[in-house]
Design a protein around this nucleic acid. Structure first.
Length: 605
RNA sequence: CGGGGCGUGGCGCAGCCUGGCAGCGCGCCUGCUUUGGGAGCAGGAGGUCCCGGGUUCAAAUCCCGGCGCCCCGACCA
């Protein structure tokens, strides 16, 4: 890699920049024309808007809903090719590549070794790992009829390489990663680049001797991910997440809160978890007085919590909701939770340590009673009681038509096992702190795989005593496109995008007003040359267009600084600089403008 | 996979119900004017009306079939 000098960089804390000595695969083109830099210095971009492919639109596409979708299309960053399939136009790709470069640096910093694996795979390793049946996996045949797949991740392949090459504990640990396109036949692509069928992902894989060593690799990724998210300028949370169908030993997701997010995150001081797995203390509920024994009450036609609670003048939380499930296809269990709570199927699945489905109405009728009136008293099946149900008298179904029971007390009136299977809600508490729930987009995840892949793919090594051992693995994903979209969502305003400065397509947009050939334009040209000397990346709006159009386009694209060269200020020996975030303007003296701009840029968020 | 909606010039849309010259705004091209918040005047280019079939003297419009795209839900190693 031609690691060019970074002399003259305005920010040495950010060593690598787009467009410099990149030699990786992928369609990363230099933007605009290039001018030869001085020997040993950066190759600088000469990017004049008059010749740059940045098709902005005044109106968002009619079918766009999410803010990032609308703005990224309007700003000329992305264009749609098909459902969940997007092209990145030059300015958009610059953003993407800046994020990629940050991720690459942080991966290298923890000892990651970059490589590249193909997108097209033979089906065989996927059959071996047991993932060939996944619906989201694109499957195809080659001309000879051999089954092929388009990779959604690369566990099978990378594990195969390691299995073939690693013999000894001395070959471990390893951190291998690549940036590669992933293909997923998503049931429903949505929201621009937020959920697509094809996207670039950084995925890394760690290979270790044992669980403790895997912990170390995992912890390295926590550090790297924390840093890359910070550097990208995103607001983010690292949250506990579900280990999913793959099983696994632990997992976290990196979530960027934003309105278009598809996930819900429960956040309290010192706590953050995906709502799918979040645990919290429920808000208390006022229970009625106790009874010596359950007492039937007529509830004709009242099959909902609301109807029964209203009729009996008790809060919904004073009822117990019964959720009958069929576990592993045959056994029925009854899950009981407070009437004002909802079953969390992800948590229930892990509590059961088995797959389940809700029981059908006829199964309910046969084993318990009429649906809408079922309860735990007299039920001959395992009863799982959510831990938010405090001791006391509750109203439950009576397993008889049009009848409920009141004064039902867990333990006295039915036996149970305690589980934690409810979805937390805003207002619950964790260690005294109140939970709020925010939508968020998952930009990265880290996952302890254990031996999930090393076993079927026979990735083993010999330990010090010559015994064969399975390799312990972890996998770690990061989506630059989602990070970019999340940044758009988090910082956009009425005028458009407002990039964090390190991932902006350009550092500065220079707007030359006046007619081509005017004094302003001559000054703008001179300033353009000076600015480039500072190492900043400049987009120069040299179009023959009105000021309104130029300002609007600049604010839509969202570069952190906008310089305006116009008659109004040059008479006073000044030029105007606008900070995009907040849109506040100030003037800088014409003398030493470029250095002052670089100085200002360094202070931006 | 269930529900809803849409497909007409580059973008946003009207026209469809009630069949009869394919329109509007923005953008684009040329000229002149204009140059600190999407400017004005004049002239101009650009459309297999998603595709196929049917009905009809005549289909963007009615009928049948298909394809594509969006939204909600389900789903999302």
């Amino acid at each position: 890699m031609g690691r060019a000098s970074r002399g003259g960089r305005p920010d040495d804390s950010w060593p690598a920049r787009l467009g410099r000595g990149r030699r990786r695969a992928g369609p990363c083109h230099e933007a605009g024309q290039s001018e030869p830099g001085q020997p040993g210095t950066l190759r600088r971009h000469v990017t004049r808007l008059s010749g740059y492919f940045l098709p902005t639109e005044r109106e968002p596409p009619a079918d766009a809903e999410a803010l990032s979708h609308k703005l990224m299309v309007r700003a000329g960053l992305i264009r749609q090719v098909g459902s969940g399939l997007w092209s990145w136009l030059p300015a958009g790709w610059r953003v993407h590549q800046r994020i990629v470069e940050i991720v690459r640096e942080e991966m290298n910093a923890i000892g990651g070794q970059e490589m590249l694996m193909p997108v097209l795979h033979p089906a065989e390793p996927w059959r071996r790992s047991g993932r060939y049946g996944i619906d989201e996996l694109f499957k195809l045949k080659d001309r000879r009829g051999a089954d092929m797949v388009l990779a959604m991740t690369h566990e099978e392949i990378v594990t195969g390489h390691v299995a073939a090459a690693v013999r000894s504990y001395r070959d471990l640990p390893l951190i291998l990663y690549h940036f590669q396109v992933k293909e997923r036949d998503e049931p429903r692509p949505r929201a621009g680049v937020l959920r697509t069928r094809e996207f670039v992902m950084k995925d890394s894989y760690t290979f270790d001797r044992d669980a403790d060593s895997l912990d170390v690799a995992y912890q390295k990724h926590v550090i790297a991910y924390d840093r890359m998210l910070d550097r990208c300028g995103l607001e983010w949370y690292r949250v506990e997440s579900d280990v999913g169908m793959m099983g696994g030993l632990g997992a976290h997701e990196y979530m960027a809160p934003c309105a278009a997010g598809e996930n819900e995150v429960a956040i309290a001081p010192g706590y953050a978890a995906n709502v799918e797995v979040a645990t919290a203390d429920a808000q208390p509920v006022q229970l009625p007085h106790r009874l010596d024994a359950p007492e039937p009450v007529p509830t004709p036609g009242m099959t909902t919590i609301e109807a029964v609670a209203t009729a009996l003048s008790v809060p919904a939380g004073a009822l117990l909701k019964a959720f009958p499930v069929i576990v592993d296809g045959d056994r029925m269990s009854l899950v009981m939770l407070r009437g004002d709570h909802r079953v969390n199927e992800v948590k229930l699945r892990s509590a059961l340590r088995a797959d389940f489905r809700p029981a059908h109405p006829d199964e309910v009728a046969e084993r318990l009673g009429p649906p809408g009136f079922i309860g735990p008293v007299g039920a001959e099946m395992p009863i799982l009681l959510d831990r938010a149900v405090m001791p006391g008298p509750y109203v439950t179904g009576a397993n008889a038509p049009d009848e409920h029971l009141r004064g039902v007390e867990p333990g006295r009136d039915f036996a149970y096992e305690t589980v934690d299977v409810r979805s937390v809600v805003a207002g619950d508490t964790v260690a005294g702190g109140t939970i709020r729930i925010e939508p968020a987009i998952e930009v990265g995840n880290i996952f302890k795989l254990g031996t999930r892949y090393s076993e079927p793919l026979a990735a083993r090594y010999l330990d010090e005593s010559g015994r064969e051992q399975l390799i312990w693995m972890g996998c770690y994903g990061f989506g630059p496109a989602r990070a970019a979209a999340a940044a758009v969502e988090q910082y956009a305003d009425e005028q458009g995008i407002s990039w964090p400065r390190v991932i902006a397509p350009f550092d500065v947009e220079l707007v030359g007003l006046g007619r081509p050939g005017s004094d302003e334009r001559a000054l703008a040209e001179r300033l353009y040359a000076e600015l480039r000397e500072t190492g900043l990346e400049i987009l120069y709006d040299d179009r023959d267009a009105g000021p309104g159009e130029k300002f609007a386009d600049a604010e839509l694209l969202g570069c952190p600084l906008r310089l305006t060269v116009g008659r109004r200020t040059i008479g006073a020996g000044e030029i105007e600089v606008q900070v995009r975030r907040g849109r506040e303007s100030r003037t800088l003296p014409l003398q030493g403008t470029a250095e002052a701009v670089a100085e200002l840029w360094r202070t931006l968020p």
